[in-house]
């Protein structure tokens, strides 16, 4: 088993962050390597915040916002969806697997879902790290850069 990947989760204060809190209160287990950055809304998650996380050593970035239609700021979560899409393109250009960034919608009441998403995402990133370790010279997203 390879070591725990570094995961940054940009979480909206009104939903996913509360869900994370709830997960803790409910004694739900989720990986300790998931480090949460609280945002007032995922609409605050600018593209370069995500890229910067990778530059600073993150293996994966999770952006967790409200469900469509439930954004406290009307459509900040929908903007986040678009930005994550664009971020994936930029990561491909830089030779990084776009699967390393993911947008999820988690409501404030869904503590168990937060824990589950964290586990699944961590597992996915762990596998990507493993694949990369096995074939270090092959750019994961090769062929997609053009």
């Amino acid at each position: 088993m390879s070591e725990d990947p570094n995961i940054i989760a940009f979480c909206c204060h009104y939903c996913a962050f509360t869900a994370a809190d709830l997960a803790g209160t409910m004694r739900q287990q989720y990986p300790v390597n998931v480090r949460i950055v609280r945002l007032p809304c995922t609409g605050r998650a600018e593209i370069n915040m995500v890229l910067q996380a990778f530059v600073d050593g993150a293996d994966g970035v999770l952006v967790a916002g409200c469900e469509p239609g439930s954004c406290h700021f009307i459509q900040g979560n929908l903007r986040a969806v678009k930005r994550v899409g664009q971020t994936k393109k930029l990561l491909i250009e830089a030779g990084i697997d776009p699967e390393r960034v993911e947008m999820r919608h988690i409501a404030a009441s869904q503590g168990p879902l937060f824990a589950q998403v964290s586990r699944e995402f961590t597992e996915k990133i762990r596998q990507l790290n493993e694949e990369k370790r096995m074939a270090p010279t092959v750019a994961v997203a090769q062929g997609e850069t053009t």
């Binding site: 593209i47 890229l51 910067q52 990778f54 530059v55 930029l90 250009e93 830089a94 030779g95």
Partner: peptide, 18 residues
């Protein structure tokens, strides 16, 4: 400034990756 930041991050990631 924003786009400069994005490109800088991309260049840093790409150079590390490659």
């Amino acid at each position: 400034q924003k786009e400069t930041g994005v490109l800088a991050s991309q260049l840093r990631l790409a150079s590390r990756e490659k």
